[in-house]
């Protein structure tokens, strides 16, 4: 029970800290959300390539995989995996293979909900 509590605490801390880092960037640099996402994906991929992201995942679990940096990590990890298995062609196929579920789900649900819902005026 205590172990489970500790795991979730770690998840919360790591995930929260990554998001807080993003918020600091927004406040300090007036950066738009598109750029935040791009920046974090690249950071995740570079950290993975340097072998620094896996320890973070072992410590923070979903706290490290759910933020968009985890998406960048999957892209890099997939490409490395692809190269290992198939050589050069793997650099092309690996990234998308690893993230296929997320991207497809995002596009399909956006398509469906885009058809169903209409945009609403913001209240505040």
């Amino acid at each position: 029970m205590l172990e489970m509590f500790l795991t979730y605490l770690k998840v919360f801390l790591v995930g929260g800290l990554i998001c807080m880092l993003g918020q600091i960037l927004i406040i300090k640099t007036k950066i738009t959300s598109s750029r935040i996402l791009v920046l974090f994906v690249c950071i995740g991929a570079v950290l993975e390539a340097a072998g620094l992201y896996d320890p973070l995942v072992n410590f923070g679990k979903a706290g490290a995989t759910v933020p968009i940096t985890g998406f960048g990590r999957s892209l890099a990890k997939g490409a490395i995996q692809g190269v290992k298995e198939m050589g050069f062609i793997g650099a092309f196929t690996g990234g998308l293979t690893a993230t296929a579920a997320g991207i497809t789900c995002a596009v399909v649900s956006a398509f469906i909900f885009g058809l169903i819902f209409n945009s609403k005026t913001k209240k505040f």
């Binding site: 738009t32 959300s33 945009s119 609403k120 005026t121 913001k122």
Partner: peptide, 16 residues
């Protein structure tokens, strides 16, 4: 508000 917002800024439902 909503026409200006989508032309000059972001989609209304974007959580920024």
């Amino acid at each position: 508000f909503s026409t200006a917002e989508r032309q000059y800024r972001f989609p209304l439902e974007l959580g920024n």
